[in-house]
Design a protein around this nucleic acid. Sequence first.
DNA 1: TTATTCACAGAACAAACGTTCGTTATCACT
DNA 2: AGTGATAACGAACGTTTGTTCTGTGAATAA
Lengths: 218, 218
Amino acid sequence: MKRQSKALSTKQKKIFEFIRDFLRERGYPPTVRDIVHGCGISSTSVASYNLNILKNKGYIRRSPDISRGIELLDSSVALRNKVQVPVIGQIAAGKPIPVPDSDTWDVTASAETIEVPQSLTRGKEGIYALKVKGLSMIDALINDGDIVLMQQMSVVENGEMAAIWLKSEKEATLKKFYYDKRGRVRLQPANSQMKPIYVNPENVEIQGKVIGVIRGLT
Amino acid sequence: MKRQSKALSTKQKKIFEFIRDFLRERGYPPTVRDIVHGCGISSTSVASYNLNILKNKGYIRRSPDISRGIELLDSSVALRNKVQVPVIGQIAAGKPIPVPDSDTWDVTASAETIEVPQSLTRGKEGIYALKVKGLSMIDALINDGDIVLMQQMSVVENGEMAAIWLKSEKEATLKKFYYDKRGRVRLQPANSQMKPIYVNPENVEIQGKVIGVIRGLT
DNA sequence: TTATTCACAGAACAAACGTTCGTTATCACT
DNA sequence: AGTGATAACGAACGTTTGTTCTGTGAATAA
């Protein structure tokens, strides 16, 4: 069945979030009447009408004639006790990482997400993941192909690993970040085979810092 | 309210597993009648009677008079699309890793678990995690304090990283595993500062191989 | 201006649903 | 053998629940 546009009205977004929060809180989905009460909707048929739109647009699955027969589809939700982080792209790929800000954060928009331990993300906001391309951070025990967890941040401490956008070169890079004594920025690979890069501070844009690494061995 | 013994009858275990599997499959819990049909129980009051036992013993929460008002409590379940792996202990800790076998596997028994990406564990069984102690595998990009994901396995290929129990020395170790030409086993650290260990094959017991690494940076 | 579609509204219906009730069977203990 | 607790059983009840029906109003398209 051909999917409609995924754009939702304000009320539909509210319904979706209500279902997600209800499920996370209670361990079971809401009824149509729960949605009526929780979203300030005047009748069960309006709720059902909007639920059918969410279904048609691929956000939920409904089981007809079954109580609480609403299932959030995997691509659209972080389920309870599970942090699902978008894998936005690869670092060192020649284009800026499209890091969303908190107003436009839409986890469902990413094609790919990854489950991460809560211990790595607890208490933090603006989390996303990047797949590493290249060996520039191998001496920091980060290999080509690893997934790095990032926390959105525009300022980092000296020595922290960060995702940096170089405006003039139009490329993104993962490096250790240092402020030089002479006012420049030193982007330091963690690889003895590679030299650091020195750039003007106004040429760099810090997009996040590394807070974790995930690697599979096959 | 004082908790009763957590021991469950065969039927109660079956009901619990049915609820867990149903929830994982459908995204919503079963009704009492679903449980009746799915567990071969003759009446709704028997199902309800056993559900109350599960409630009293801390396995589930019930919401009275609500359809599908059954919630699996966190300590007892890995929820849908989330793989929760027990962190059994530390490797290189001087005692055998208490790796359970498939008959006695009880994820709920571990004090500590960690959420891991499905991409690392999909299609695999007997998964557990270990916290690394020491730097013996640093050249394989595994640091002290990292979490390694293990798949229970008693035979590994030459060169694979494995958790090995040394019977005579009574210690567990994480090393690359090789069969020597002269019939011995070579346990090779991935650290240029450390020498390999040569042991008799009958002195080693392979307890699992490494399938992934998770690291937090604080 | 008119027609069509979307969104909403409330009532009613029938099936689903959990609980209650009265009963029987089994088990452990004395 | 008797007793009490546990486990099971089936029927019935009242509430919960999703859907359908009929209608209205707003927005959009012709």
